[in-house]
Amino acid sequence: MSYWKEVINGGWSLVEGMRVTFRRLYRPVVTVQYPRQKVELSPAYRGHIEFVKFKETGTHKCVACGQCQRMCPSNLIKVQGIKERAKGRKVGTQYFIDFTRCSLCGLCVEVCPTKTLKFSREYELEGVSRWDGVIDLMARLGETRP
């Protein structure tokens, strides 16, 4: 009996798939003349990660705790920081990430205790060589203007 049940379920999924295909077949084709026209992104789009620039300090709040580095499943993040005073907090000085191998899983964004990391809306991140994908987010934050 289970054999016939699988055959019926398989046939039904085939019919459903063909119904979706035929419905999409008669919709108009939308072509964007890239790069003259920009693609309109979905609100749910998750680009590469970047630092949040906080208005009250004018910079990031990274304390170089290393939680994002430990949480990264691909081991792509390298964080370095210094203590300015002996009993003071640690301050992040370098934050390297290799975007060529990043899977955009978002674990680093979720685990950040200071909420310094966020997903960007940028989708035009390209380079000529493999090493153009290795970026220091601290230096990149310094290049941007509020």
Rank of each mutant, 00 (worst) to 15 (best):
S2M: 08
S2P: 03
S2E: 14
K5E: 10
E6M: 04
E6Q: 10
I8N: 11
N9M: 02
N9K: 05
G10C: 04
S13C: 01
S13Q: 08
V15P: 03
V15C: 06
E16Q: 09
E16N: 05
G17K: 04
M18I: 04
M18P: 00
M18T: 06
R19H: 13
R19M: 07
T21C: 02
T21P: 02
F22L: 07
R23F: 05
R23N: 04
L25E: 08
L25P: 00
Y26G: 01
Y26C: 00
P28E: 13
P28T: 03
P28Q: 08
V30W: 11
V30H: 11
T31K: 09
V32G: 03
Y34R: 08
R36H: 04
Q37A: 03
Q37K: 08
V39H: 11
V39F: 12
E40T: 09
L41R: 12
S42A: 11
Y45E: 02
R46Q: 11
R46W: 08
G47K: 13
H48Q: 12
H48T: 02
E50C: 01
E50W: 03
E50P: 00
K55L: 02
K55P: 02
T57H: 13
G58A: 10
T59Q: 05
H60L: 01
K61D: 08
C62E: 03
V63Y: 14
C65R: 12
C65G: 05
C65P: 04
G66L: 03
R70L: 04
C72G: 07
S74G: 05
L76E: 06
I77T: 08
Q80W: 11
G81Y: 05
I82M: 13
I82L: 14
R85N: 04
A86P: 02
K87D: 11
K87Q: 06
G88F: 14
R89W: 08
V91E: 15
G92W: 12
T93A: 09
Q94V: 09
Y95K: 08
Y95S: 04
F96R: 13
I97F: 13
I97W: 14
T100S: 14
R101E: 03
R101T: 01
C102N: 10
C102W: 12
L104T: 05
L104E: 14
L107C: 03
C108N: 06
C108E: 09
V109H: 12
P113V: 03
T114D: 14
T114K: 15
T114E: 15
T114P: 04
S120H: 09
E122F: 06
Y123Q: 01
Y123A: 00
E124L: 02
E124Y: 07
L125P: 00
L125W: 03
L125C: 00
G127L: 01
S129R: 12
R130C: 00
W131M: 01
D132N: 04
D132H: 05
V134L: 14
I135Q: 09
I135R: 10
I135D: 06
L137R: 12
L137Q: 10
M138N: 12
A139Q: 15
R140D: 05
G142K: 15
G142V: 02
T144F: 09
P146Y: 15
P146E: 15
